[in-house]
Design a binder for these strands. Structure first.
Lengths: 364, 364
DNA sequence: TTTGTTTGTGAGACCGGTCTCAAATTACAA
DNA sequence: TTGTAATTTGAGACCGGTCTCACAAACAAA
């Protein structure tokens, strides 16, 4: 193989020679371990500076077995939710002198698998993952069994006994949906980008990702509470960035049984919905009410501004990272499952149900 | 040091022993180099599968000198501009089987320096950087002199003769500003998050980042064209995510000589401006017109929707990555400077200047 | 003075791969 | 049938660090 022969870099041996000491001694001062006399230390340091020595982190990692970096696999870095969570992770990591290798899975399991494979091969010291799908988690179970610490972000996997940080999705969905039912809405849709493996049969079927399941449970629970039948049929999966999803949204909004209120699973879906609603000539909140998860920065500036479920996203990222780092340092307490609270920021996107106006329902 | 003794992983030697061949031979088939007979190859592969062998990428990198990953240093991953550019980079990298180590500099030179140091120590094969500041580029010059390919994203550095992909900022700013001057505006402000080293004295002073300089030149050029004097005074630096920046915005909007039109340097600044304008009780476009760089997803859904300079952000990221990867493969053509075109998407945020109404100016 | 510790240093194995080189085997041509 | 070339394999050096171990010198206690 004809490789461009990387510039010959300065090694410990070079420094040792320059400082007239053994390689072992030079390594000791350069690596910051063992004991060395002050004189020798100074000499080595001077030689290192003179030669402009830079340690080869790879070589170091190979012997120590630790790479000083953690791998992070998120679904979609373009989603402000993940971007913010990643910043939380980065900040926490930086504080511990650990760096972050970020990989985008595009919410595809294959990409996720591949990302994890690569990261493991790169000997990351730990892994933070937002599982793209709940069905295929064999690769994650394998990591969990291994000695490489794994932590889950935003999406819990009951089958995995690993550190996990999520938000109280069920409660959030419950409260958000209640706002809608109290405004008299009865045809309420829950729209999520998540994919469903197989058909949707009842609340617990095939939904192993806690985020999605919990939200649905909260949603259904609020519906039941309001005496709404068959709310399961109003759950729409797969509303991600795709042609089909877009078309499905329009179909939904133009159907005869068009919902009078929608709960969106994230700000990206919400924005798409917002646009679709406009394109269909509908008015928020007169014709249709909208609440979304994630207080994305733009949700406050639309007309009307959107009522949102405010998740502590930055803290979410910061917490998982801290949990993982603690474990890297040797902590072996049983896996911790942290659930962060959410709040609802009420703005102007919820109105009385069109068909309920004048029927005694109150706006809140 | 008491480290948790990573689980002993399967090595080539283990596979070799299992397959009853030499380590060299096993390495050949596992590493995919050299020539091996079909039988032996099968035997080794079988042994590898039986033992569940996973190559140690670190060890591999150490001998080959190439790590198979590139480092990317961006200013702020939360800025949708960078998020999208990073996706462009990731996609291009994935296509070449290269992975991306992403570091957030937070637009701080010290963090940027540190990030580069760490990435170099990790032996990345190449570096893509969005220089946080133009003043201190010694660390970048050093990389440029080294054998590690460097490429610049979005912000050119004239002093550095390296592959660079930017957009035609001057032209974009010129055209955007023209839209404003043609609508009769004369008090036009340019608001950017960029920091200025020292005072602003004349167009070229202390501004070495091409993006910022080019935009200012375009802006001033359009102002001059319209016979506007002293437009330099209406350039506002440092409007990033900070208390001070926020206060400065409000001060600007409440001042007697409040601008009647603003050109924002990115969508984050624009959103802040949008909110500030509302908070000050001003109306877009009646009281004030707004144009921003970057067609962020929300700019189309505000009331009114915002006129934007549409930059090919994804392509920007994809191009630098491709340029860099080409170089990794041995291409040593002189550094390429690619300038991508922008377009303006006119929406509803530009109105006639309040003091010009009825004076013969036309709304475009 | 003798013995026992502590401290500083060097020699060299090792991590898990790649890769050079030479020996052994096979194929091909004369 | 024999010489030569091509192919396949093994032995071992090497990458740039870490780390164990042995030894020597310095110091403390007896």
């Amino acid at each position: 193989m004809k490789r461009p022969t990387k510039a010959p870099s300065i090694t410990v041996s070079d420094v040792a020679r320059e400082a007239k000491v053994s390689k072992a001694t030079a390594a000791r001062v350069l690596g910051g371990y063992g004991r060395v006399s002050q004189e020798v230390r100074d000499a080595v340091l001077e030689a290192a500076k003179a030669l402009d020595y830079r340690p080869n982190e790879l070589a170091r990692s190979m012997t120590t077995g630790r790479s000083g970096s953690i791998g992070v696999v998120v679904g979609d870095i373009e989603n402000p939710f993940f971007a913010l969570a990643v910043r939380g992770i980065s900040d926490a990591a930086r504080l511990s002198g650990i760096n972050v290798i970020l990989v985008n899975s595009g919410e595809e399991v294959e990409a996720e698998k591949n990302a994890i494979r690569v990261l493991m091969a790169k000997q990351v010291d730990g892994l933070i993952v937002t599982p793209a799908q709940s069905g295929e988690i064999a690769h994650l179970e394998e990591i969990a069994r291994s000695t490489c610490p794994l932590a889950l972000l935003d999406r819990a996997l009951p089958a995995l006994d690993v550190d996990t940080v999520t938000v109280d999705d069920r409660d959030a969905a419950l409260n958000a949906t209640r706002i809608l039912t109290r405004a008299g809405h009865r045809r309420i849709a829950y729209v999520t980008a998540a994919l469903l493996s197989g058909d949707f049969r009842g609340a617990e079927s095939h939904i192993n990702t806690s985020t999605v399941r919990e939200r649905i449970l909260g949603f259904l629970s609020a519906c039941r509470e309001a005496g709404i039948e068959g709310a399961e049929r109003n759950i729409h999966f797969g509303s991600g960035r795709s042609e089909g999803a877009h078309a499905a949204m329009h179909a939904l909004l133009r159907s005869r049984a068009r919902p009078t209120a929608i709960l969106a699973s994230d700000s990206v879906v919400a924005l798409d919905l917002f646009k679709a609603i406009r394109q269909c000539g509908l008015d928020i909140p007169r014709d249709i009410s909208l609440i979304t998860f994630h207080d994305a920065d733009w949700t406050g500036v639309t007309t009307p501004p959107i009522t949102v479920i405010d998740q502590p996203v930055y803290a979410l990222g910061k917490s998982v990272a801290e949990l993982l780092i603690r474990r890297l340092k040797g902590d072996d307490r049983p896996a911790e499952k942290i659930v962060l609270p959410t709040t609802i920021i009420e703005r102007m996107s919820v109105g009385l149900a069109p068909d309920a106006i004048g029927q005694g329902f109150e706006r809140n």
